[in-house]
């Protein structure tokens, strides 16, 4: 009772990184709250899930294993969670801020009348003073998220309703094994008691999921372009630089929205969060929503025409000049001086 539970996102029998990151965060918060860490897997043929998640410190793993539960559709997964949460009364529930978690989370929160905060960038435990009621509530989950296009950071609490629900994007939290030999308990749920036939009104006709070919998150060097690159054509020189240095190409939201590069490369609050050794920002002014996704890079080079671009404030090297001129020179002098 009153534990912390994580919804596991599963594709082809593999638990997603975002879920393992949430388990890592969940473990440390559960320790702070002196409660158990639980996980729930909903899908088909889930025998191998335990091996994947127990090392992250999961105490109880609930399995809802039924052919009809894979691939994911909204209503049956909602029913399993809603009924399980009514039964076990978790105090906190986490999901990935993915197309699954952002489809499922609001539905579950509405059914349970519990508050949900999307896209949290930080989760902490703290107290809240309810001035109207004249009382202080301890051990609440602080759900910290950027809002308003990233211009502010808000701390949200759910003083009354349980579970306190939050979604977090992939890459925001760190993934860390607690103990490779950690063993929890598996509890198999009788699926027929959790879902009804009416939950299966959506039919999956076609499904093409690709394993992400890009690994921007894991790349030690990222060359990112912004709206200032002007065109998809101009992005080519960024690929040249990335290839020369052994890195990946990323982009700001504005560049993605303008169609210069694919969405998968988007870095920032609504894309991926990265922490490379070197981040080269080309023609990126530095909207806060972008900076939030790359500020932890070890070294930052900003190339911009505008000497007052906001991104310059957090850069180690500020190059004021044209990207078209600077990038080829970087390639040239890297080749000349390396080896």
């Amino acid at each position: 009772m009153n534990n912390l539970i994580v919804y596991l996102e599963i594709e082809d029998g593999i638990v997603g990184d975002v879920s393992l990151e949430l388990l890592t965060k969940g473990r440390s918060l559960a320790d702070e709250l002196k409660c158990k860490l639980e996980a729930v897997a909903i899908g088909y043929q889930l025998d191998k899930i335990g091996d994947q998640v127990f090392p992250y410190g999961v105490d109880t793993l609930y399995l809802a294993d039924d052919k009809r539960l894979s691939p994911y559709t909204t209503l049956p997964h909602t029913s399993v969670l809603v009924n399980l949460f009514k039964e076990t009364e978790p105090q906190i529930a986490f999901m990935g801020a993915t197309s699954v978690g952002r489809d499922l989370g609001p539905r579950v929160s509405s059914a349970l009348f519990s508050g949900l905060t999307a896209d949290c960038t930080s989760l902490e435990i703290g107290s809240y003073e309810d001035k109207k009621a004249g009382k202080t509530i301890d051990n609440l989950l602080y759900q910290i998220r950027p809002a308003f296009g990233g211009n502010i950071v808000a701390t949200i609490v759910n003083p009354e309703c349980r579970p306190q629900m939050a979604t977090v994007r992939e890459g925001v939290m760190k993934k860390e094994i607690l103990d490779p030999n950690y063993k929890g308990t598996v509890k198999k749920l009788d699926v027929s008691k959790y879902v009804s036939d009416e939950d299966f009104v959506i039919e999956v006709i076609e499904r093409h999921m690709e394993k992400s070919k890009l690994n921007i998150k894991g790349s030690p060097i990222i060359v990112a372009g912004g709206y200032g690159m002007g065109s998809a054509e101009n992005f080519k020189m960024l690929y040249d630089l990335a290839n020369t240095l052994g890195g990946e190409v990323g982009a700001s939201r504005a560049a993605v929205d303008a169609g210069f590069v694919e969405h998968e490369r988007q870095i920032g609050q609504t894309g991926v969060t990265v922490r490379p050794k070197l981040y080269i920002a080309c023609g990126i002014s530095g909207q806060i929503q972008h900076i939030a996704g790359m500020q932890d890079s070890s070294m930052i080079i900003a190339i911009n025409n505008d000497p007052n671009a906001p991104i310059n404030a957090i850069a180690d090297y500020v190059i004021t000049g044209n990207v078209e001129e600077v990038v080829p020179k970087m390639i040239k002098y890297y080749k000349k001086n390396s080896k």
């Binding site: 759900q143 950071v153 609490v157 900076i291």
Partner: peptide, 14 residues
Amino acid sequence: PTKVKSIQSVVFTA
């Protein structure tokens, strides 16, 4: 059910 506890403007350390 959700309440805003606090709001901070984002300031990055230069």
